[in-house]
Design a protein around this nucleic acid. Structure first.
Lengths: 343, 343
DNA sequence: TTGTACGCGTTATCAT
DNA sequence: ATGATAACGCGTACAA
């Protein structure tokens, strides 16, 4: 029944050579006569042998795995449009190099640090990819202490040296605000994600800076949590203001869609009385009514870049920071001139 | 600089015992005096030693990893609300047992089979979890041939023996149709996912059966692809029919939301002239306007169950099939009596 | 409790 | 240049 795994020795024996030579042939190393190499490879293939990842990992001290620790509730993870395409992008690069992705989902808090410690202690991964960067993120320091190679997806706070793959999402926010300004809006609010996230804070600053550049006073900003419920609540808060905005730039599509529905539900029509801009440009956004103006980022490319940077690190090559094309505003029907200058 | 990993021998030497005893102490095996055990563990902890996963994997012939191959385009993956909570649920169980999740994302087709072959050949995982079951799924046979342990998330076609974790989603569809019938609808259409998916086909059959049980003729069914674009297109097709339905049950929320917007865009109000039911009960659904009636499944629990079944398999214990609580209809504002019986 | 073989490749070191 | 032999990595199983 159990046909005891084929090992390198079996192949060597069948090919009439030593295990060493099989290894050399397989790994394209010099010192193997071409004909011998061909024979070995052919025998290996015939016997259906491929080296045991376990044994190889032990002797090379490489796991051929890249780790990623996600510190989020399942709930929040489910509705996040960032997560899956990032994984897909990473995997497309990793898989091609024989690497795999080792995922850990933990609840936020100390469990996260433990997860990194375990990955390091057990040497299960060759490097990790950091996402959801936080404003005062203790992970870079922890990883350095643990001796774990790491790549940051985004711009980590502090000028310390984590190789990073950056996609400038602020450019999209700036474009959004300018688009709204061009339509005639003067009261442009922002519903941000949690401010302890670097990208949440960054988008908020980009929004504020764009307003300031236009000579406007600071707009209203509500800090929310990237959930639909949070987006709706934020919109209600804005509408409760005696001087509500005529446009809102949301930190993600989920909040934007819920916020839009919340406004409509109070009789505030979108886009006639309220313009809405989202962020992520989820597939759904183009198919809503009105279709959502949103900011698009190429998350798959981001994942690919993160993975290839991680691989470079593992191979000991220097890993230069990568700058991806910036986020781009996709204008759709949820933005229109404000009611005041309508006729 | 590189402080050469602490090994079991270092610990043994420091504790004045043999490596074997350290191993025994660590693994709570009998034959170690309590005081000795305590001393060993204390020394190990002081030295910051934990066993190398690589070495352990080699000697136990276990990877402590569960694999999952996702054969989908990044695009489709991004908007799928199933994927992330399933992973999260699995991870919560795996992580607690020191296992990790090894993910592979491939494009549909032969690459998928290759991915399984690689996982098996390299012995990188102890078992795999199968999702997106297909009607004529060749994977069970492939996995048997490869000798890979596997768990099916859902009800695999064919009565062959893959341990399975089943959540009856059909019950939710049945409830949805009955809910619509109760409201007075008689023309209830269905927009299904691709029919080669078991769950797509199953939901479609549940819909058809519920109609038949009510003595109605077969309703209109449009096969779509689980995307927003597909949902919108399907709704247009239904509305183009000379005798359009008054209610539509969609195979997922994404299509339902887009379909709803498509109807509204043609002046067909939801729910006054068209009732809509989704599937998944995504977080957004409750915050739309109107809020979406949908079918809820506990995907996190599904993931947990799949993982624990996989672990049982790996440990050689029998793995009984698991039946989770069935999907549940959540009634919201997108369903209402049909226009005919309105007054 | 301890010694020793073993798992399975990789990589010096040696021999032709 | 080609190839073989042996040590190594690190923990576990089993006999002693």
């Amino acid at each position: 029944m159990s046909p005891t795994r084929v090992t390198i020795s079996d192949v060597a024996w069948a090919a009439g050579v030593s295990p060493t030579l099989v290894s050399f042939a397989l790994n394209d190393r010099p010192g193997v006569a071409p004909t011998t190499r061909a024979r070995i490879l052919s025998v290996a293939s015939d016997m259906g042998w491929s080296p045991s990842h376990r044994a190889r990992a032990l002797s090379t001290a490489r796991s051929s795995a890249i780790g990623m620790v996600i510190a989020r509730d399942a709930e929040l993870l489910a509705s996040d449009p960032f997560f899956a395409p990032l994984l897909a992008g990473m995997e497309s690069v990793l898989g091609a190099s024989g690497f795999s992705l080792l995922l850990r989902v933990v609840s936020p808090g100390e469990a996260e640090r433990d997860a990194y410690r375990q990955l390091a202690a057990q040497a299960r991964v060759d490097a990790v990819v950091l996402t959801d960067l936080r404003v005062r993120d203790r992970r870079p320091a922890l990883l350095r202490e643990l001796g774990l190679l790491a790549v940051a997806v985004g711009r980590p706070a502090g000028r310390q040296s984590l190789p990073r793959v950056v996609l400038d999402d602020r450019a999209g926010i700036t474009a959004a605000v300018e688009h709204l300004l061009g339509l005639g809006h003067r009261r442009i609010a922002h519903v941000s994600g949690p401010r302890h996230f670097v990208h949440g804070a960054g988008r908020r600053r980009a929004w504020a800076a764009a307003l300031e550049a236009a000579g406007l006073r600071p707009g209203q900003c509500v800090e929310a949590d990237f959930t639909a419920a949070g987006g709706a609540k934020a919109m209600h808060a804005l509408l409760d203001d005696p001087d509500p905005p005529t446009a809102v730039v949301f930190g993600n599509d989920l909040m934007a869609i819920a916020g839009s529905a919340a406004a409509t539900g109070r009789g505030v029509d979108v886009p006639d009385r309220m313009s809405i801009v989202g962020f992520d440009d989820t597939e759904l956004s183009a198919h809503l009514r009105p279709p959502l103006t949103s900011v698009r980022t190429d998350v798959v490319a981001w994942g690919r870049a993160a993975a290839s940077t991680a691989l470079k690190l593992v191979e000991g090559r220097g890993a230069p920071d990568i700058d991806l094309p910036p986020a781009q505003l996709i204008v759709r029907g949820s933005t229109a001139p404000p009611p005041a200058i309508r006729h």
